[in-house]
Amino acid sequence: MTMALAMAGVGSAAQTPSPPAATERQTSPRPPAPKGPSLGRPASDAEIAAIDVSVGPDGAGLPPGSGTPKQGAEVYATKCIACHGPEGANGVNDRLAGGQGTLKSATPVKTIGSYWPYATTVFDYVRRAMPYPAPHSLSDAEAYAVTAYLLHLNGIIAADEVMDATSLPKVKMPNRGGFTSAFKPGR
């Protein structure tokens, strides 16, 4: 099975055009064909879609569906409260709400409201990893709803605001400007 798939990969690589001559390559933006063994097989759109769960800060990758803080409160009360505490505080695991205005103090309280720069990250993380005992058990609508509830707990969106693929990337997080990248490309 594995061998057959690998051979399919070889076949597919063989169909790609042969590399241009050296003189052409200098003027063409097209990179040379792979020099490696080419033992991968083409990944189909369906195969990629089945595992591509990531959401970018621009909202790329957000699925259909929507949720409100009110709906999210119900999910939170059954799936999240045991670890994160009532209203996102005083749980045994990470505090999720409050802490705004503490980042300059000796004991900064880092929560979604005080620290996280992007609202999309909340949805991405809830969908890929939460609730801790049963990740991937929430529907996309439930993930939107829990995200909405957590944003509302932090005073970032109103109680009746609907979070979906359009509205979530537009949410302005309080600490959006609080980060500097230490990585400088090309250095």
Partner: peptide, 8 residues
């Protein structure tokens, strides 16, 4: 991608 483990 600004994941949880490179922001929070």
């Amino acid at each position: 991608s600004m994941t949880k483990d490179e922001t929070s």
